[in-house]
Amino acid sequence: MEYQKYYVPESSKFPIFAAFSLFILIIGASSTINSLDNPESNASLILYTGLACFLATLFFWFRQVVKENNAGLESAQLSQSFVYGMAWFIFSEVMFFAAFFGALFYVRSFAVPWLGGEGEKGLANMLWQDFEATWPLINTPDGGKAFVIAAKSMSFPGWENISHWLPLYNTIVLLSSSVTVHFAHLGLKKGNKKTFNIWLGITVLLALIFVGLQAAEYYEAYEHFGLTLNSGIYGSTFFMLTGFHGFHVMLGGLMLAVMFIRSVFYGHFNEHKHFGFEAASWYWHFVDVVWVMLFLFVYIL
């Protein structure tokens, strides 16, 4: 078999635009955050300019890759590079979540019990001698001097209240969406574009429902339970883990929506070539697995 040339673009304007807009973006982000208590600051304009430029660059960059693909420039070897690239990108995301799960496990197994006087480093209890270790940690060790004590946690409320428990519905929605995206994949592999479009559309819809439910849960936490980022380590880990997960759901949902638009309006993807969709679906399954971990370690246990 003759070697099919590996496509290397001679030069590209996208990366330098992406790098420069990220530069603007982070200057804007840092300045905005540093001037949060200054209502007259215009720093957020820099932030939004950078963000808009970055998103636009990504749009044109991906569009170019799709065009090259449709023009037949992609050899089998190049497609394989994308497969490996996506897999390793997801691995890096796994490690990002690992940092936050690690923090959760550490405070639950070590830091909080020690502050409560249990275990080998229970000496830490001398700092706040009235503190008793519990999880979910509602009363902060300092007795709420520097923090706002929440009324209630988001954990499992007992079987009698389970029908009002939002995370359960979130779990059902997200787990089903993993199944529907798989049905879409099966349909595509058989060459049935209609099945593909319908199931993919349902998946995007489920993603939207999940984000909506998550927003409702946050509203409930802030307005009714008084649980905020400022509620001590329970609130910190709860909002950071579910927040980053929610952000990744939005990202994955956006990817799937783009694939949906490409398929429905531009007729992209067939049973042989559909890695764009496949990559997005891998990402979606990853987001789903993270949720299962969250449900287990943040909500139930």
């Binding site: 902060t140 060790p141 520097a146 910190s236």
Partner: peptide
């Protein structure tokens, strides 16, 4: 947040 703050 209070990741690195024992008071929380």
């Amino acid at each position: 947040t209070s990741f690195f703050n024992a008071a929380g």
